[in-house]
Amino acid sequence: MRIKLSVENTQLCVGCQLCMYACSRRSGNGGLGLSAISVRSSGGMSKGFTIVVCRCCEDAPCVEACPEKALIQIKTGGIRLLKDKCTGCGLCRDACIIGAVFWDSVNRQPNICVQCGQCALFCPHHVLALTKSEEKTP
């Protein structure tokens, strides 16, 4: 079983960012500082929104880039950050060409999506979904 977050229909996104708040709120706090998902306008609000989420790559470049082995790939989906090992070098962020490794500027660590689906639960227009599949991880 593999769990993966997916963007179902960006056309329905209204830019409310509730997904980002939900992600950040997993820490117990408010704001957007710890969000591992991003919603931004596609060059002005009238053009709609771009949603950046972790694609849960099968062979994740961010994991490979980490010199401290602070990122590990989980078989059921998602990447985990071992915070104690992370030195805040930022190489994982540089390695993710879709920009899905976000940054906690206060703690100088990446915000990594764990594919928990909280963002999808709080999406009022069903733009996001957490999907389950039988495909195997490497």
Binding site: L18, S24, R25, S27, G28, N29, G30, G31, L32, G33, L34, S105, V106, F122, P124
Partner: peptide, 25 residues
Amino acid sequence: GARETPVSEPALYKTLYNELYTQMA
């Protein structure tokens, strides 16, 4: 800005937030 906004009672905060959101949505 991209700071977190700390709260004093995280468990209560989440519960009340969820109630509020359900009512709005």
